[in-house]
Design a protein around this nucleic acid. Structure first.
Length: 407
RNA sequence: GGGCAGGUAGCGAAGCGGUCAAACGCAUCAGACUGUAAAUCUGACGGCUUAUGCCUUCGGAGGUUCGAAUCCUUCCCUGCCCA
């Protein structure tokens, strides 16, 4: 039923940063094969940010590989933890969500995740199921199993503590709550980014405390965002969303620095190992223009999440707008009522939300960022064209088709 | 409970009675350039019927002053040290 261990390990090892401990994983695989029982592979997801991007896809794709090998994927929606609001890391006060909100986000997460995962083989559970029924006494008992010193070992805590930044008591409970998830589902393997190392390891300790065999921690590298510096995240706006429309996905991919091309191929796509090697070589030797590889990457990604046809379309559209400097095929329309013609360019820009304020609208015009039907507007007070339909362009890539209606 | 240091625009951080819509850096936006939505360079970066004009901002509320981000009172929040 299961492929040979070596084969499984080859697939599992691709792209991973660390497996702790690897021997345990091999042993678990052997046992699973012997007893013909799939392993339980756990992945926790944060329902406060339901928009998935390529960064999430790195781990999700690993989970998919486990599914394809015949193992069971369990997605844990942190609806309970989301209700409290985790203030860890950079976002200091994460808004506490209601149970309905976290459920809804969980749904949305699942829908997006199944663009990568096999929906039939994915089990989805909500951690309020077991965390919500714990009593205060249970929590204290759980907390007694870990020490402050060990908690402070966590890199994130150490740094914040040294920097004199606040750490709330309940943040200490998060790793423990996450560990309880592993206990509840009897996880054999937990996936996560390298930033999850500490939490994954706490899971091992707590499982042991509950008389379970500790899980294997499998960590994937953190994907760098399109800025080439920070990790990909929505709040830094350096992400490529897996639900981004094809054109967007294509364009964003082309904007990554050349140094990231290989990493993206390795972590975010399915290109076979041989091709991966070729790509690395051609990048190192300079035999191929990086642009061509980047375009291939962009096409590959769009093809993965949409279709090869969409990928070609996105590429054509990109060339049309940025290389030929022409206008896109489909432009959003805005219906403009102009009866007594009090609409100026400035008010038009604010009305259409192309500018957030009139001052900004003026600024854009003064800096030459606004054009109508391809003609740059330089005068703030220039009259609007009298035509019934015209195209307004702001910056490099925001277009709007204005359709005038006269009542 | 006591002592000390802080809370400034999206973030970080200057300013410590008028010349402050508030230096500087990052982020953002625009322009030039480019294979690119990259890099680099240039500029902008609270709002308003563009105005050497007005309005709203420096944790909250009061107060002193002709005038307060800057001084005082009080409250809230954060860190450190002592208990």
């Amino acid at each position: 039923m299961f492929p040979p261990i070596n084969e499984q390990m080859d697939i599992i090892r691709r792209g991973v940063s660390e497996i702790i401990p690897e021997e345990d994983l091999v042993r678990k695989l052997e046992q699973s094969q012997r007893t013909n029982t799939p392993l339980i592979i756990k992945l926790g997801c944060d329902p406060s940010r339901p928009d998935l991007h390529l960064g999430h896809s790195v781990v999700l794709r690993k989970l998919r590989q486990f599914q394809d090998l015949g193992h069971t994927a369990v997605l844990i929606v942190g609806d309970f933890t989301g209700m409290i609001g985790d203030p860890s890391g950079k976002s200091k006060t994460r808004p506490a969500l209601t149970l309905e909100e976290t459920r809804r986000n969980g749904e949305s997460y699942f829908q997006q995740a199944t663009k990568i995962l096999d929906p039939v083989k994915t089990k989805i559970v909500y951690n309020s199921e077991w965390l919500g029924t714990m009593t205060f006494a249970d929590v204290i008992r759980l907390a007694s199993k870990y020490t402050v010193a060990r908690m402070l070992e966590r890199d994130d805590f150490t740094l914040r503590y040294k920097a004199g930044e606040p750490i709330s008591i309940h943040e200490f409970l998060y790793p423990l709550a996450q560990a309880m998830d592993s206990v509840a589902i009897k996880a054999d393997v937990e996936l996560g980014g390298t930033d999850q190392k500490f939490n994954l390891l706490v899971g091992r300790d707590i499982q042991r405390e509950f008389g379970l065999e500790p899980q294997v921690a499998l960590m994937m590298p953190i994907l760098t965002g399109t800025d080439g510096v920070e990790k990909m995240s929505k709040s830094l706006d350096n992400y490529i969303g897996i639900t981004d429309p094809p054109n967007e996905m294509y364009g964003k991919t082309l904007s990554i620095p050349d140094s990231l091309i290989y990493t993206y191929f390795e972590l975010a796509t399915d290109v076979p190992l041989e091709r991966l090697k070729e790509i690395k070589e051609s990048l190192n030797s300079g035999a191929v223009n990086p642009r061509d590889l980047k375009r291939e990457l962009a096409r590959t990604l769009v093809a993965m999440y949409y279709s090869p046809q969409e990928a070609l379309k996105a590429e054509a559209e990109f060339d049309k707008i940025f290389v030929e400097k022409s206008t896109p095929t489909d432009i959003e329309e805005f219906k403009l009522e102009r009866e007594n013609d009090t609409v100026t360019i400035v008010t038009l820009l604010t009305q259409t939300k192309l500018a957030s304020s009139k001052s900004e609208a003026r600024r854009l015009i003064e800096q030459g960022g606004v054009s109508i039907d391809g003609e740059r507007i330089t005068d703030v007070n220039a009259p609007l064209p009298t035509k019934p339909v015209f195209i307004v362009k702001v910056g490099k890539r925001r277009f709007l088709k204005i359709v005038c209606t006269t009542n």
